[in-house]
Design a protein around this nucleic acid. Structure first.
Lengths: 149, 149
DNA sequence: GGTTGATAGTTACAAAAGTAACCATTATCT
DNA sequence: AGATAATGGTTACTTTTGTAACTATCAACC
């Protein structure tokens, strides 16, 4: 009826990105949820601490683009699981330095290994050119600086 | 310290997908929110009705992989905006056929034009090879069948 | 040195999403 | 036909997120 050559949601990048994100997130979020009862933000905070060492809440927020209330809640949850401890910063008593405790470190190690393995599984669906182009495109869309090294 | 060559979140596809999805969704969600006070699910339901004609709630749910409670709430919201009407199906009185009303059709037309234009803007950041590879990769990740025609 | 403004983080309240139970209707199976 | 199960959709309850206001500390400026 004149309208059949129309724009399809499947060509709309934000829609495709959301579908792909949901689809690929589901598998891994089941992992950290079932193994450690974590929420996504909690996993991300845990990851940043494990990967980059002690940080303050606002530093994590800046790196991961997470709002400070979400971080605050995630930190409380991780604290009550004994995954991290807070230490008041001596030079600025507003800040608190977050450090992983042994059980938090263990969860980080375990989950990071799971993430790497899942990532390899995803990568295996693509040629290495396709894969690196995909990552580069997503970085560009996410406005991330390209990775170092 | 032996751990510095470690897995980075920026190489983790689900994370990148989420960042890119959030980043690109934000611009367009502001459009449908500001112009028509719609939520994301409401926009998606509106889109499906505008694009594919009259459908029932469960048909939309199947096409768009949206849970039926979300659809139910979105349909109520669209109904109270006079964007659609429900008609009981004669052969199965459980179902109701959803049809866009003129103001819903107008919103669909307007928003679809905006989506296309935003999509072109996004596409312009890539070569046409990169763009089609990106869409194809995302379709594969989202487990969508490749588009027809 | 006291006021003003920014920053780190928490808390309170409102909006949204997820889960499960729930009607009503239709399909199945004996 | 009558019991049982499946389907379409809504509602109630809970969890999670978003937004804004708030406390406490520090920085800047007169």
């Amino acid at each position: 009826m004149g309208k059949n050559d129309h724009f399809d949601l499947r060509e709309f990048l934000p829609y495709l990105l959301n579908l792909a994100a949901e689809e690929t997130s589901q598998h891994f979020s089941a992992t950290y949820r079932e193994r450690y009862g974590l929420l996504r933000t909690e996993w991300r905070v845990l990851f940043h601490l494990g990967r980059y060492g002690d940080l303050s809440a606002s530093e994590i927020g800046a790196m991961a683009k997470i709002h400070k209330t979400k971080i605050s809640r995630a930190v409380s949850a991780l604290e009550s699981k004994n995954f991290l401890k807070r230490t008041a910063s001596p030079e600025d008593r507003r800040r608190e330095i977050l450090s992983l405790l042994p059980s938090g470190q263990a969860a980080y190690d375990d989950l990071t290994a799971a993430a790497e393995s899942y990532n390899r599984e995803l990568a295996s669906q693509f040629s290495s050119e396709e894969w690196s182009l995909l990552l580069a495109s997503l970085e560009r869309l996410a406005h991330l600086p390209p990775p170092k090294e």
